[in-house]
Design a protein around this nucleic acid. Structure first.
Lengths: 140, 140
DNA sequence: TATTGACTTGGACTGTGTCCATCGTAGGAT
DNA sequence: ATCCTACGATGGACACAGTCCAAGTCAATA
């Protein structure tokens, strides 16, 4: 299963029990967990793992480009293990559910040079908002 | 834009010194301030204004649709007084500076029906990321 | 100007994230 | 297989963002 763990080892990442567990927790989830949710799941497998280690490891994974950090609401950041395929997010305005989506085209192309203010653009993050089928249903 | 203050009064908002000052602080800025930055500027004019009141007032303004809340990085939320003209944001990855920008085209058009998962889309928020001229400069 | 209920205050509290001194250990060297 | 040591883990304290609450204050109305 863990492509991820293998890739990290090949890149000279010192593999500790803690790091492996954090990577596996992320890898096994198709949701976008917060740091504390990752910590909770990791704790189930290694009770003495510290919060700091989880934060450090998540930060490292983001720096390595293996995981994306998503800030949807100004509360806890969420971690998205699906970093290898470019994608955007679809968020339900009512219940907060998130899905990965894949729009067509290059969003950077839509920002004219005159609107770039000298910035060196790296990428664009798009959050589509709306109501999910459950929340839009009249009876629900 | 005592427009803003007027609009609020017409909508039955009880106008207090504190609320007027918060509205004026936002109105007078073309940056996107955090709640604590608003509080600092308000304090310069009314030293005893409380943090809670600033938070309450900002929350009310957002609920009234007069101000937009922007969550860019999972740290402090920023408040954007320019709620009446559709726009997106350009964010410096290093220093966190934000500018309003106006891309061309309709971002919703880029999301194929097959990628909408039954959601009733309302709008899309785009954050362009990159380095601002100051942070990109070698010596800075 | 008196009344009243909405608003403000400030301190305590929660949640999220970071820092740091100290201890432990993965992985190379022998 | 064992030793070494630099890198990683720990956990408690701290910092920051935001919320809650009980008590005091005041804007709007009559």
């Amino acid at each position: 299963m863990s492509d991820l763990v293998e890739r990290l080892r090949e890149r000279g990442w010192r593999m500790t029990v803690q790091r492996r567990i954090v990577a596996e927790v992320l890898d096994g989830e198709h949701m976008h967990l917060t740091a504390d949710e990752v910590h909770a799941r990791a704790t189930a497998r290694l009770p003495e793992i510290s919060r700091t280690t989880v934060y450090n490891t998540l930060g490292d994974l983001v720096a390595l480009g293996e995981v994306l950090e998503v800030a949807t609401d100004g509360r806890a950041r969420r971690y998205d293990p699906n970093a290898h395929r470019s994608h955007q997010h679809l968020l339900c305005s009512r219940c907060g559910a998130i899905r990965d989506v894949h729009p067509v085209g290059d969003p950077l192309a839509d920002l004219p040079a005159g609107e770039r203010f000298g910035f060196a653009l790296s990428h664009a993050e798009i959050t589509y908002r709306g109501l999910c089928p459950e929340c839009a249903a009249p009876g629900a």
